[in-house]
């Protein structure tokens, strides 16, 4: 029922976005036009260390999801080449894990409250492949997950190469209870070309879009707990292997797999 209402609400929203990209005071659509952070990955080598740090290792219980990879900051797993950031998952024995990959994080380097956050990415594919472009509340050290909040701009299961998932997690609506919506790319897939994944986030709403399609809006009315998206968040990009969300790779999963990022841009107004 709720979904139905949402869909009806989106049609004018979508029209507004496509036709004018202008403010509409009844729909809470705001354009963020001032670049506040931008990485076009134009310099080959290691990613810009003034923007990106790394999380290394396996975290606790595979980063809380029983993920199988060991994250490193080695060139084999993360590098910039030909104007693109390459995050590559490999099948190899490494410090007790069967896979390696990378997780980039802007914690303590870049954080922002509200704005437009987008990245242009060509995704990898295959059973057990789990790339993500997402954000966590910057107060996570004092206010642990899920209370800090999480905004998943892009998640995707390599075994469903046409389906994008956008979600929020917060207190009372995390993990399997997250507020989430799938978007299916018709007659196309996310691993054969670049697509722009983004949100426009303002007070009391998060709009989710892919390319020129606005496919969801989440507001305080949609979440089944406290709305915690009113403070700065930092960005993460990673390519996970296995774990609860996707299941393990199988014999047919091709390695290595690379998530190719053309740019990450953040705007405010």
């Amino acid at each position: 029922m709720k979904k139905y209402k949402n869909i009806l609400g989106f049609i004018p929203l979508l029209l507004a976005l496509i036709m004018s990209c202008s403010n509409d005071d009844t729909q809470k659509v705001v354009n963020f036009t001032q670049i506040s952070m931008q990485d076009e990955f134009d310099t080959d080598g290691t990613p810009n260390s003034s923007i990106w740090g790394y999380e290394i290792g396996t975290g606790a219980n595979g980063w809380g999801n029983n993920e199988l990879q060991y994250y490193t900051d080695r060139t084999e797993n993360v590098t910039v080449q030909n104007g693109k950031l390459l995050i590559t998952a490999r099948e190899e024995d490494f410090n007790g894990s069967s896979y390696t990959s990378a997780r980039l994080i802007t914690k303590d380097l870049f954080e922002q409250r509200y704005g437009r956050f987008e990245a242009r990415i060509k995704l990898p594919y295959g059973q057990g492949i789990w790339p993500a472009f997402w954000m966590l509340g910057a107060d996570i050290d004092e206010n642990s997950w899920p209370a800090c909040g999480e905004i998943d701009i892009m998640e995707y299961r390599g075994q469903n190469p046409s389906v994008l998932i956008g979600s929020v997690h917060g207190p009372g609506y995390s993990g399997g209870e997250a507020i989430s919506k799938e978007y299916t790319l018709e007659n196309d897939r996310f691993d054969t070309g670049f697509h722009v994944f983004g949100i426009e986030w303002g007070p009391e709403y998060i709009n989710y879009y892919v390319d020129d399609v606005l496919y969801n809006q989440i507001t305080p009315e949609d979440v089944t707990g406290e709305w915690v998206f009113n403070k700065p968040f930092f960005i993460l990009m990673n390519l996970a292997i296995g774990g609860n969300f996707v299941g393990s790779p199988n014999d047919e999963t091709v390695f290595p797999q690379t998530m190719i990022v053309d740019y990450v841009r953040v705007y405010n107004n």
Partner: peptide, 10 residues
């Protein structure tokens, strides 16, 4: 048909 989702040749 042109499905558009036939990809990743091996």
């Amino acid at each position: 048909e042109k499905l558009g989702t036939v990809a990743q040749p091996q």
